[in-house]
Design a protein around this nucleic acid. Structure first.
Length: 406
DNA sequence: ATAGCCTTGATC
DNA sequence: GATCAAGGCTAT
């Protein structure tokens, strides 16, 4: 290894500031932090090196599985075949690896990198505008939760304070576009072709790499529906055979909730950002709860809003990450960035992104209220299922007790 | 073989 | 001179 000469130290310092700048991006191949533009797009240092070695040495790999291995930060070494396929799939350019091995200088992709940077800046500004618009139309955010230790069973159902009606706004159900800041919602922008978008969905629309990851781990909704139906039928048969009274609506609801909870946990555990999650306990507070009817009504209003927006599978996948993972700032920015990029390229209207963020916010408060509701039912022993749902509610009760003692 | 750090050199 | 994306080096 060479010593740290004064020149290389200054270069290192500038590289550090560069890393801070691009540090918010994740490598489209493995999800590691990117270190700059390499062979056509922003990637991490290890995928840059891997791509270079593979192309320079004309390596041929084979996959011992089914050519569909997971490529993430921890498993990227496992299957070089699938890793290299993913490098090509996300758009790394073979022609950027120099045949003559000439060092230094710039290549033909310089202008492309510059354009991509400018677009990223534009996207950042749009994101901030949409966020500030959302903030001004919603009640102030809750104070940050205390730094508890322990595993969160909330599965992203982070408890927010009860949403107070905003003094300046009508009820949330009618809080639709007309109440948004016109400067943002009426601001149509041209979706320019994105150099980093290299793959298309079946409809021919180019998708951000992060969104492709979300779709890859997206559960099969039909499968979930049939599982729930099977569980409900099983329950009905059980009651019929034991000649007891038919199952109550509450117990059927609990079975549905439990089955969905299992699927959510299953999905979350295999999802892209799972390893980056900060393990923290939900903000556990006791408070007056809503009624089942009001929750259902709010849920229906939200469903209507999403139907009206015609939210598609891609957008729904992002919303699920934002809601259920309740991710940290870095992940939140990534997911929101992918969603913004997608809505711009699919609808070309920024207002759509702001409306989707509103739905996310509404869903967050609704899930928090539902959790409170189920918890209160649990305390009054009206949630009787011996399953994951009751386990979650029991854990919440234990933590509430522990915090009260502390 | 991998991945982090270093050197190089065209371009700004 | 600064930047930054190439290739190179080397500890693991």
């Amino acid at each position: 290894m060479k010593g740290c000469q004064s020149d290389s130290c200054s270069q290192r310092a500038s590289r550090m500031s560069e890393c801070l700048d691009v540090g918010l991006e994740l490598c489209p191949v493995c999800g590691d932090k990117v270190s700059g533009y390499h062979y056509g797009l922003l990637t991490c240092e290890s995928c840059k090196g891997f791509f270079k070695r593979t192309v320079q040495n004309n390596k041929k790999y084979t996959c011992v599985e089914h050519q569909a291995c997971t490529v993430d930060k921890t498993q990227r070494k496992r299957c070089p075949f699938c890793r290299f396929q993913k490098c090509l799939h996300v758009g790394m350019k073979l022609e950027a690896v120099r045949a003559d091995r000439m060092r230094g200088g710039r290549n033909m992709f310089g202008p492309m990198y510059k354009r991509d940077r400018a677009l990223k800046e534009q996207r950042k500004a749009l994101l901030q505008a949409a966020r500030s618009s959302l903030k001004s139309s919603l009640p102030p955010p809750p104070p940050p939760p205390p730094p508890h230790r322990g595993f969160s069973l909330s599965c992203g159902l982070q408890a927010d304070p009860l949403p107070q009606p905003h003094p300046l706004l009508p009820p949330s159900s009618s809080r639709l576009p007309q109440h948004q800041s016109p400067s943002v919602l009426d601001w149509s922008v041209k979706a320019e072709p994105r150099s980093s978008f290299t793959s298309s969905d079946p409809g021919g629309l180019r998708l951000p790499p992060l969104m492709m990851e979300f779709l890859r781990c997206d559960p099969d909704e039909l499968q979930l529906q049939s599982r729930i139906t099977a569980r409900l039928q099983q329950e009905q048969q059980r009651h019929a055979s034991s000649s007891s009274s038919s199952s109550s609506s509450c117990s059927l609801l609990c079975i549905m909730a439990d089955q969905m909870l299992c699927s959510i946990v299953e999905w979350a555990r295999t999802s892209f950002f799972f390893k980056q999650l900060q393990v923290e306990l939900s903000d556990i507070t006791c408070r007056a709860g809503p009624t089942a009817l009001s929750l259902i009504q709010r849920g229906q209003q939200l469903v209507e809003k999403l139907l009206k927006l015609k939210a598609d599978r891609q957008e729904f996948a992002c919303i699920k990450f934002l809601i259920l993972f309740n991710p940290g700032k870095l992940v939140q920015e990534q997911v929101e960035g992918a969603l913004l990029e997608y809505t711009l390229s699919s609808s070309q209207v920024l207002g759509r992104f702001a409306l989707l963020l509103q739905c996310v916010s509404e869903l967050q408060s609704l899930s928090s209220l539902t959790e409170s509701y189920l918890h209160s039912r649990h305390l009054s022993a009206r949630v009787c299922c011996n399953n994951l749902l009751s386990e979650m509610l029991h854990a919440r009760q234990s933590w509430t007790g522990a915090l009260a003692c502390a």
